[in-house]
């Protein structure tokens, strides 16, 4: 499909949804509103509120807090996942011993850990970072583990025949292979880091996007809830673009689905 046409159709979907929402919440149909303003607010109101948040500058503080938590959770969780993923993949005995516990920890819905982290780490950013880390860690861990395990045996044998020692094998074979697997999970990992941050804020904090949404909900300020959600969604999109950019730069060696290479 032509990109302009695609963009137009995508825009049309947004227009239709907002149109229905606006009409449902402001036009009386048969003596009743389809979408009562109290429960659904109106797109115009939500738009105004978002504008206000940016115009007054109050949103920047919350955004930066959420961003900090996300970034910290992502990096700490990834570092842990890489280290343990490698360790387990290279030492099958360790992997076998810890296997049931890893599975157990991964099966646990991480949200239930939030209160514990709050008790241990307080209401500041670190309890949110911890929650995000528990989510990110397992994604990266499993991918790196898989990446190291699934190194092509032929590539490995070839590298050995070149005379590579363990350190060189790590640098030239295991690490790039694990990295490519890790990157395939990067979008998910970043997403989960953000989930950890927002859910943590929602459950107890004094700043951040989750906090904003929770505050608005507490006073039945539906406009505020929707405004917060909208900003959150836009925020995720921006981060996702950034991740895609990094991915493109680091994984140039991968076959592209498009006909770039002719």
């Amino acid at each position: 499909m032509h990109p302009v046409r695609l963009l137009f159709l995508q825009f049309l979907v947004a227009l239709a949804v907002i149109g229905i929402w606006q009409i449902g919440s402001t036009v009386e149909i048969g003596g009743d509103y389809l979408l009562p303003e109290f429960f659904f607010s109106t797109p115009v109101e939500v738009g105004k509120r978002v504008w206000q948040m940016f115009a007054s500058g109050m949103i920047w503080k919350h955004l930066s807090i959420t961003l900090t938590e996300t970034v910290l959770a992502f990096f700490i969780g990834s570092a842990g996942g890489v280290v343990f993923g490698f360790w387990f993949a290279r030492k099958p005995v360790v992997a076998a011993v810890f296997d049931p516990y890893v599975k157990m920890a991964n099966a646990l819905p991480r949200v239930v850990l939030a209160p514990i982290f709050m008790l241990w780490l307080g209401l500041g950013i670190w309890s949110k970072v911890a929650l995000g880390v528990t989510l990110v860690f397992f994604i990266v861990f499993f991918n790196v583990y898989q990446g190291v395990k699934e190194v092509s045996p032929v590539v490995l044998a070839n590298a050995r025949m070149m005379g590579m020692n363990e350190r060189q094998l790590f640098r030239s074979v295991y690490w790039p292979s694990a990295l490519s697997w890790m990157f395939s999970s990067l979008h998910t990992a970043v997403g989960f880091a953000l989930v950890g941050a927002v859910v943590g804020e929602y459950l107890g904090s004094a700043a951040g996007l989750g906090y904003l949404i929770h505050q608005a909900e507490g006073v039945f300020d539906v406009t505020g809830v929707f405004a917060g959600m909208f900003i959150l969604a836009a925020f995720v999109l921006v981060i996702d673009w950034g991740v895609s950019g990094i991915e493109r730069r680091l994984l140039v060696w991968r076959p592209q689905p498009a006909a770039d290479h002719g």
Binding site: S152, A157, N158, A159, S180, W253
Partner: peptide, 14 residues
């Protein structure tokens, strides 16, 4: 010895 394998043995990331 140098070994040329049947399957692709090049490192795809290089």
């Amino acid at each position: 010895a140098g070994y040329l394998f049947q399957q692709d043995a090049l490192m795809p990331w290089k």
